[in-house]
Amino acid sequence: GATAVSEWTEYKTADGKTYYYNNRTLESTFEKPQELK
């Protein structure tokens, strides 16, 4: 079976905060997504 690849990509803001962006739902969040835990 195919492994589900996380759609979340980790980015940093200009002031160094980490956030996560989902390229399928176009959602962004500062909290670590469930799929990455």
Score class of each variant (00 low, 15 high):
N22D: 02
K17G: 04
V5Y: 11
A2F: 09
N22L: 00
P33S: 02
Y11K: 14
G16K: 01
S28W: 13
T25F: 01
F30V: 08
W8D: 01
T29Y: 05
W8H: 00
G1S: 15
K37P: 11
G16D: 04
N22G: 00
A14V: 11
K12F: 08
K12M: 11
L36E: 08
N22Q: 01
R24D: 06
W8S: 01
E7T: 05
R24H: 10
E35T: 04
K17D: 08
L26S: 11
E35F: 06
T9K: 09
P33D: 02
S6L: 09
W8F: 01
A14W: 05
K37H: 12
E7W: 07
Y21A: 02
T13R: 03
K37G: 15
D15F: 04
Y21E: 08
Q34S: 14
T13K: 03
K17N: 07
T9W: 07
N23L: 09
R24A: 10
W8T: 01
E7L: 07
T9H: 09
T29H: 05
V5Q: 13
G16F: 01
Y21P: 03
F30Y: 09
D15R: 03
T29V: 10
S28K: 14
T18L: 09
S28E: 08
P33A: 02
A4K: 11
T18M: 05
K12Q: 11
Y11P: 00
N23S: 15
G1N: 14
Y20T: 00
K12G: 03
G1I: 14
K32G: 03
L36H: 09
R24I: 15
Y19R: 04
A4W: 05
A2V: 14
E35Y: 07
T29R: 07
E27H: 04
Y19P: 01
K12H: 10
Q34I: 14
E27F: 03
E31D: 11
E7M: 04
N23R: 08
T3V: 12
E31L: 08
K32L: 10
V5G: 12
N23Q: 11
Y11C: 15
S28D: 02
T25K: 01
D15V: 02
Y21H: 07
E31Y: 05
K17W: 05
G1R: 14
S28P: 03
A4L: 12
Y21R: 06
W8L: 00
T29W: 04
Q34F: 10
T3D: 14
E35H: 08
F30R: 04
R24N: 10
E27I: 07
A14S: 10
R24V: 15
T9Q: 13
E7P: 07
R24G: 05
D15Y: 04
N23H: 14
L26Y: 12
T9V: 15
L36Y: 12
V5I: 13
P33V: 03
T18A: 06
K32H: 06
Y19I: 12
T3Y: 05
T3N: 14
F30Q: 07
S6I: 09
T29K: 05
E10Q: 06
P33L: 02
V5M: 13
